[in-house]
């Protein structure tokens, strides 16, 4: 038994040493341009302009310029937040897609589109979320009057120079006795709006949930929090009153998404919302 284990260990040693030595071998040479051109032609026929193309070479930019020359738009990494990507093509020297694409499902088997190049077609499953406000918070332009809320906060963004409650942060808030994960967005004092500009968002149906915390609902302030939603589809006004719970609204949005949150009286307006586009 011990002898057998000794042999197994020596075999393991040999494998480890050989593997280490193999790591020192020179990299495989670049593929000929013709391979990338052929793969590019195949991709150009299949992909639409809205599709996303990801280069999959394990960190190398080989082929990037050749694909761009063919009017394609290959990316080195997926844009964040990733909700805007729906149809994804993964092309490169690697036979398998890179890690981190769990949200996408392959629509068919991998295809060798040119010698040494593999193409995967992936799709975000139907009905899944395209965009979430909580994921896009760090990219949003947030302002209170002339103050830019660009301060760093562990859970989102703070507004330097303003009180601590004047922030937009991912929090758990109790509304109608239930705890909800949502974005804290207390309206500023004196009716000034809190403006959250998310920039361009994917076209789709915005599912917005919002409400005042139970503590706020019990307060003497009955002034509702007004939420104005602006997109290329127009403007919509929603109101959150005391005791109204965590209300849900659906509306179509496209283009730039901007929210304005305000209240006539700001005392104890612990307001919270969540927003996602499907």
């Amino acid at each position: 038994m011990t002898r057998l284990l000794d042999y197994a260990l020596l075999l393991g040693l040999a494998v480890a040493v050989l593997l280490s030595a193999a790591g020192f071998m020179p990299q495989a040479p670049d593929l000929p341009d013709s391979a990338w051109l052929k793969a590019g032609r195949t991709l150009a026929k299949r992909a639409s302009r809205q599709d996303t193309i990801l280069l999959n070479n394990g960190g190398s930019t080989e082929g990037l310029a050749l694909l761009r020359d063919q009017e394609l738009k290959p990316l080195l990494a997926l844009p964040e937040p990733r909700g805007r990507v729906q149809k994804l093509w993964v092309l490169g020297r690697r036979a398998k897609p890179p890690a981190g694409l769990d949200a996408f499902h392959p629509t068919g088997p991998a295809e060798a589109v040119a010698p040494g190049l593999t193409l995967w077609s992936l799709q975000r499953p139907g009905g899944s979320t395209l965009w979430r406000a909580s994921e896009a918070l760090e990219m949003a332009a947030i302002t209170v009057g002339k103050t830019r809320c660009s301060g760093h906060h562990p859970a989102g963004r703070s507004c330097p120079g303003l009180p601590d409650w004047m922030r937009v942060t991912r929090e758990q808030v109790t509304i109608s006795g239930r705890s909800h994960h949502c974005l804290w967005a207390h309206p500023p004092a004196q009716g000034t709006p809190l403006v959250i500009d998310f920039g361009p968002v994917p076209e789709g149906e915005l599912l917005l949930r919002h409400g005042l915390s139970d503590a706020a609902s019990r307060s003497g302030n009955t002034s509702p929090v007004e939420l104005r939603i602006f997109s290329a589809h127009g403007e919509r006004l929603l109101r959150a009153h005391n005791q109204a719970g965590f209300q849900a609204e659906r509306l179509a949005v496209k283009g730039r998404l901007k929210l304005k949150i305000r209240a006539q009286k700001d005392g104890m307006r612990h307001y919270c919302f969540s927003a996602e586009i499907r």
Binding site: S20, G23, G58, G59, R94, P98, G100
Partner: peptide
Amino acid sequence: FGAHVGGLSGAVQRGYER
């Protein structure tokens, strides 16, 4: 990164920070 994960290139493919 070690050769057992394919070196740096393999690690990038596995989703590690380069």
